[in-house]
Structures are given as C-alpha cells and as structure tokens.
C-alpha cells in the first residue's frame, strides 16, 4: 500500500478559496467595518478567527449574513487580516502594525498577535 501526499495541496486549496472570494462565489457573509464592506466565506473566517468561530457556532447568529464589527476596528487592519486568512501572507506596513495587531486581538487571532509582538520588538532600534 502507498500513500501520495501532495505537499502543496493546502496552499492550492487556499488559492482557490481566495479566487472564489474575489469572484464572490458562495460567499455567505458581509463584514461591515465602519463604512467599508467585505464579502467572505463564514467557514474561512471561523477557521482563522476565534471571534468568528464563536459567532458562527452560536445557533442564534450563525445564519446572519451581515456582521458589523466594533467601530474601533480599523478597516485597513481588517482588510490585511482578511487577506492573510486567504493567502497566509501578512503584510506589515510600519504605519499599520499597531492597527493590525489591535484588530488581531479583537478577532482573537492569538498567533498573529504573538508574531506581531515579536516583529515589533525585533524592529525596535
């Protein structure tokens, strides 16, 4: 018996999910951040964020098709974290690192928070 592992399968699946997002195929929720709107797949959001996992496993909230985030959330920070969820790449612009980290805290993305902490400490002169 043999087993063939396609080592790039996970990244290929994620790329296709991101293609579906950009074509708005089977997206099932709109995330409202201040005045900006982001379409996404609930399952991807739940897989990446503790906050969305809690929201969409709540039987009263899982059928919602629009979620407004706290007004303190920075739309640019959220956009970068949503891109990370669908690409595994976290873009860290100097001017946005705190917004990204605070948004990751809000979204309960602890591993991203830890990584941002380490990045900030390592880049402190």
């Amino acid at each position: 018996d043999s087993c063939i592992q396609f080592t790039r399968h996970a990244s290929d699946v994620l790329l296709n999910l991101n293609r579906l997002r950009s074509r708005d195929i089977l997206t099932d929720v709109t995330i409202l951040v201040s005045r900006q709107q982001f379409r996404a797949h609930k399952t991807v959001l739940m897989a990446c964020s503790g906050l969305f996992y809690t929201i969409f496993t709540d039987s009263l909230k899982c059928s919602l098709n629009a979620i407004s985030l706290d007004p303190k959330v920075d739309p640019e920070g959220f956009a970068i974290l949503l891109e990370f969820m669908y690409t595994s790449r976290l873009t860290l612009k100097e001017s946005l690192i705190m917004a990204i980290m605070n948004t990751a805290i809000y979204l309960q993305m602890d591993h991203v928070v830890d990584t941002c902490h380490r990045f900030i400490k390592s880049s402190d002169p």
Partner: peptide, 21 residues
C-alpha cells in the same frame, strides 16, 4: 510580493478548531 522583505514564520498561524465542543 517581489521586493518585499519576507520573513518565514514556521509556527502555528491560526487557532485549532476542537474535534467537538
């Protein structure tokens, strides 16, 4: 992502969804 300094993070990136609640 050309021209951007890319740092490879080998650690866990996201939470793990429990097998059951």
């Amino acid at each position: 992502y050309e021209g951007v300094n890319t740092i490879k993070e080998m650690g866990r990136s996201i939470h793990e969804i429990p097998r059951q609640e």
